[in-house]
Simulated scan of single mutants.
Amino acid sequence: MTLNISGPIAGYIAANLRLDLEGMMKHFLPNAVFIDNDKRHEGKEQIRKLLKEEGIAVKAVFEPDTAREEDGDVVLEGPCHGDFPGSPLRFTYRFKMEGNAIKTLETTVWA
């Protein structure tokens, strides 16, 4: 399914498909927050560590199949595949933007 996602969110998703850590990082504000299943990672250094150790290391690739706007946020849902137990798992990604950059990204795995 082709989704109409543009700008930094599209860039982040495309970089994730390539497992390109620097490509993903360039779309975050310096003081961005990444909330991964209720664990809070603040600033680019912590986000980089999270993505490297828990994303790139297990080749986690998110392939959204739905997109919507909700309360000013962009919400994507879809499977995440990789070398981790239970793969693929279905995730929700909620993006809060500031200007042309990601201010907050919250990911939640479906139970």
Rank of each mutant, 00 (worst) to 15 (best):
T2I: 11
G7A: 05
I9R: 00
A10S: 14
Y12Q: 04
Y12L: 11
A14M: 12
A15S: 10
A15W: 03
A15T: 07
L17I: 15
R18Q: 09
L19Q: 05
L21R: 07
M24T: 08
M24V: 10
L29N: 02
N31Y: 02
F34D: 01
F34I: 01
F34V: 01
F34Q: 07
I35N: 08
D36E: 13
D36N: 14
D38A: 12
D38Y: 13
D38I: 10
D38G: 04
K39P: 01
H41T: 04
E42F: 00
K44W: 02
E45N: 12
E45L: 03
Q46D: 11
L50K: 03
K52P: 12
K52Y: 13
E53D: 15
E54T: 09
G55F: 01
G55R: 05
I56W: 05
V58I: 15
V58G: 10
K59D: 12
K59A: 14
V61E: 05
D65R: 13
D65P: 07
D65S: 13
A67M: 13
R68Y: 05
R68S: 03
E69V: 03
E69I: 05
E70V: 02
E70Y: 04
D71W: 03
G72Q: 00
V75T: 11
L76C: 01
E77T: 12
G78C: 05
P79V: 09
P79A: 09
C80S: 14
D83P: 06
P85K: 08
L89W: 10
R90F: 11
F91G: 01
F91D: 11
Y93C: 02
F95V: 04
F95W: 11
F95R: 05
K96M: 03
K96N: 01
E98V: 06
E98W: 02
G99T: 00
G99V: 06
G99W: 06
K103H: 03
K103R: 12
T104N: 07
T104D: 06
E106V: 13
E106N: 13
V109P: 09
W110Y: 15
